[in-house]
Write a protein that binds this DNA or RNA. Structure first.
Lengths: 339, 339
DNA sequence: CTGAAAGCGCTTACAG
DNA sequence: CTGAAAGCGCTTACAG
């Protein structure tokens, strides 16, 4: 049980072995030039022999600049399906920053606490949150920027501005003859789920539609499946809006099992444009969210804040794009009979 | 453009305002007891007024113990579909550690570098990698444990030991009368993709099967779709093993579009047990990977290493479970005719 | 081009 | 129970 190889190599040890002062070793790591080739070589030899690397904690405590930004990822899978992380990382790198992607687990309260901890940890110059956080940025010693999520966009641009997507979907369905709607919601702890539900309900009233109401869901296929299975046979529902693609898939499955054809008898919309929805049968109508545009904008805003620059202009186009595939079609001419 | 609220509050400032020494403030944060209630209250008032939080970087530089572990997540989505992260986090917490989940973007070389950087950063006591890494743990000053991934398990337990799953699948298909196989591989930069391909090829030989070969894929639905679309009409393939569920979904879609019934004409297997595969039609036969068991084992191993304890016994059962759903059935009695 | 001094913000013995 | 001293491993002016 001897403690093997556990002692940390310090810059002093490297300096001693190389026969130079520790400041010179420090320079070797921080400056590109300004070292005599001979000195450089001596240090290089010792560094690679000892496999030494500077302690970043110590460095960042002394140097004001750490060159590191943190991207806070929610632990839901929605964001990982694109190359968003790679894009953000590359953008940060182009501006001379490292991006560390941190997933924070727990409820909103815990997550906010941990983010504040990261902010005061001294390791980062700025924080990018890829999901809304119940956090006052003023409480943080470093800039915190949140991506304009679906719902935030809504709030920024005036009540229900971006919600036009949900309304557009419903209008489209109305134009196809649908009259009785049904919403399978996401967990109401998520702002995006709350807002989709809100807009659904608002639009039902606004357009004078009939709604069988809203089922509570939790993003899973099972929740969509259950919601449709429990639908009364005579509900008359012909159009279903699910909170995401998983729930939509479950809904379609349940409909098919009940002998309802999709889309001939009932149309189903998802949200997120997951890869599998494109290839399922029927393929899934959905909403593609341009998270890369949101992320790009957010990280540029963050870097500007870290540098005390003016925030950049917002230039991206629409974030949400409706994709209509096989799961949506004209409403059936006659009502379904009870099976 | 005044720099607003950017100066960091130090422990000295808190101490000054509370009328105590900075060590007393330090004690307020590190020890549960040992402060006079009056002193505690004075400090508490100042802390909440200034919203002060100790600089963790400074703390971890001075104190040898940081109480933090890092979990390195690959930027592929496979792992985020379960509550693995929550489980790991809870396990760490129960042992008195914080788990910080870090996603590292880039190719294997870059990722290995960044992990080494984290290891020497001084911020963590141990690192758990949830994907294989081209990294010599001996080069790290702190313990690094990698979850026994599909392929690693294989190597640990002797060549092809765990590969039994792929072989079991193929044997099952043979028992259903299938004779001509086809594999849609994952990107060969991934160890798991390489190993599935290897075992496929080995088993073809071992069981004396006919194989139409291996298509190069990249985990996406599109790659599965293309592979099947490009299959010669007279290939005679009746059993397809896809590298993951996405590719399998694409394969099924392409087969249906070519007028091949699934599973009547052709059977398709996926891998990963993604949520949507359960509800698609036909539902997807797949392999469920018990990543939680792997993760649990890995983090216990890591914590033991950090504490210089004996590593715990490996007690989990089989990691991979074959799930047979509608996409797999008996081989067609007669060969398909060219359409 | 390189070395001696000071200090980043905290914690940990050690006194009182 | 609380304060004065030392030091974690580095970098940044400042001299030479």
């Amino acid at each position: 049980m001897a403690d093997v190889g556990d002692q940390r190599i310090t810059i002093h040890e490297v300096a001693r072995r190389a026969g130079v002062s520790h400041q010179t070793v420090s320079r070797y790591f921080t400056r590109i030039e300004g070292l005599k080739p001979a000195t450089r070589q001596k240090i290089e030899a010792v560094v690679s022999e000892l496999n030494y690397r500077p302690n970043l904690v110590a460095r960042s405590m002394r140097a004001k600049r750490t060159g590191r930004l943190a991207a806070i990822l929610p632990s839901t899978p929605n964001l990982t399906h694109s190359n968003l992380l790679g894009t953000l990382s590359a953008l940060a790198q182009a501006e001379g920053y490292r991006l560390e992607v941190v997933t924070i687990v727990g409820d909103a309260r815990i997550r906010a606490d941990r983010v504040l901890e990261l902010a005061t940890s001294g390791g980062f110059e700025g924080i990018l949150s890829l999901s809304p956080l119940p956090l006052d940025p003023a409480r943080s010693p470093i800039p915190i920027v949140t991506t304009a999520d679906y719902d935030e966009q809504m709030h920024c641009q005036g009540e229900l501005a971006d919600a036009s997507v949900v309304r557009d979907i419903m209008k489209h369905l109305v134009s196809l003859g649908h009259q009785v709607f049904f919403h399978i919601a996401g967990p109401q702890t998520y702002a995006s789920a709350r807002s989709r539900k809100l807009v659904y309900e608002t639009t039902v009233k606004e357009l004078g539609l009939r709604s069988h109401g809203v089922a509570d869901g939790d993003w899973t296929g099972r929740s969509g499946y259950d919601a449709i299975q429990e639908l009364p046979a005579a509900s008359g529902v012909t159009a279903v809006l699910a909170a995401n693609d998983y729930a939509a898939m479950g809904a379609i499955r349940a409909a098919l099992e009940r002998g309802w054809r999709v889309p001939d008898d009932i149309s189903v919309f998802g949200w997120d444009d997951f890869d599998m929805g494109r290839y399922s049968t029927p393929s899934l109508s959905t909403v593609a969210v341009d998270r890369e545009a949101l992320g790009r904008e957010a990280i540029q805003k963050l870097i500007a804040a870290v540098r005390h620059d003016e925030p950049p202009e917002t230039t991206h186009g629409p974030i949400n794009r409706i994709i209509i595939r096989e799961s949506v079609g004209p409403a059936p001419h006659s009502q379904r009979s009870t099976s």
